[in-house]
Design a protein around this nucleic acid. Structure first.
Lengths: 224, 224
DNA sequence: GGCCTAGATTGATCCGAGTCAAATCGCGCG
DNA sequence: CGCGCGATTTGACTCGGATCAATCTAGGCC
């Protein structure tokens, strides 16, 4: 899940499942907390998330961490760079995954349609990451948090009675490391949004967006 | 040019020219300041930079700007997302470019080797952008500037008498927008590096790195 | 040469987010 | 049920980098 600027939602939803009529390999499962791969591992498979949420992280030598992305259903993770994984990847909640052979992306042998789909996914990822640059480089804490919630609402929000409910399987620290903030700042910002009645915090891992338009405005930098 | 963490230079240099024995299309030239494409344009060509430096930028609605990347010789620019360019691109200095048809990347017809090379370039770009995430999200001003100079030194530095000289065709504002800083902070940080005799500022667009090891240390977050 | 101007530098001040610390919450477990 | 511990929230304070403003510099041009 790459946080994109809400105003420019990609026209063709990345949640469309890749055609799996030719899938040679069965889905696999990954338990909560289990690792799918580590940075430096040789890439043998790419994975499309079918259910659950993955976390992709990188560590800086001095212990600082960056959450590169959250992998939500529809997303494809594990693109190789020089044949190797360049992030760690583990499951925030039990996940079902559809593996695709690395050769399908790189050689295209076997299934041209699948090759094509994987290639397009890689190209979309480049674009999504560029959106994330704006986020990390140029947005304030409240804009970052508001953007994050808006994207999640768009991707996995459950609408009911004019409100949108979203589950946050990740910790505050994960959100902080994704947005380039500290846990304290994430927590304070959520409190601030709650106090201005834009969101409700149902429980730590469930947020209800009450005033979507206001949140969207904040994510774009409108003064409160 | 994507700023990567100096300690993990990609083993196969991205400056290796893609085989152009089968290049159907001649090189094209781009004058300083001229635009190669704009955000939203349909992608017809990808371009490999042969000489000169390109600048890829995105604008946020409220005027804030992010420099996504600088395109140095060997880099490939113009990867499509849903068939469209997702950045503006202009030349910081007169550039020679080798165009490749978009179909060569996406369909692979004609030249499988070229298709393969473009695909690998796209995958390397994903990895390079993840490095940049660490930069934008987790590094201080001095670490950012030091990292930037180290990468440029590695990519295009001219070694002489134990010193490395680098040309900066971009303005301080470009560097700032690339690193997620302000021009003032970039300027102050360069002054600070100059005063601690780690670099010399020959003229505004030429920097000499005197103490490469110290600069590398700063880029990794060692306390000065 | 001398002016003009955009870009760069430097200075003073402010503020947002980080840091450090303490209190609180929530859940698993004996 | 009460305990213990990690995650979260809240508070007080600090500081790095932004902001606002004032030079300074170097080309470009007459």
């Amino acid at each position: 899940m790459y946080v994109t600027i809400p105003s420019e939602v990609t026209p063709q939803k990345s949640t469309n499942p890749i055609t799996d009529k030719t899938a040679q390999v069965c889905e696999t499962n990954l338990k909560t907390g289990a690792y799918l791969f580590y940075e430096g591992d040789p890439v043998e498979w790419l994975y499309q998330v079918k259910s659950g949420v993955l976390r992709l992280t990188r560590l800086l030598e001095n212990g600082r961490r960056q959450v590169i992305a959250f992998g939500y259903p529809g997303d494809i993770v594990g693109f190789p760079a020089n044949g190797l994984h360049h992030t760690d990847c583990d499951a925030l909640s039990g996940a079902r995954l559809q593996p695709y052979r690395r050769a399908t992306l790189e050689k295209g042998d076997g299934d041209p349609a699948l090759h094509q789909a994987l290639l397009q996914a890689a190209l979309r990822e480049i674009s999504a990451m560029q959106d994330h640059f704006m986020m990390l480089g140029r947005k304030s804490a409240i804009e970052k948090v508001a953007s994050f919630l808006c994207v999640l609402a768009e991707r996995v929000g459950q609408n009911a009675a004019g409100e949108t409910r979203i589950e946050l399987p990740m910790s505050r620290a994960d959100i902080a490391d994704f947005l380039g903030l500290t846990t304290e700042t994430v927590s304070r910002t959520l409190t601030q949004l709650r106090k201005s009645r834009i969101i409700e915090i149902d429980n730590i891992h469930t947020i209800v967006i009450c005033r979507q338009t206001a949140l969207l405005g904040l994510s774009l930098g409108d003064r409160d």
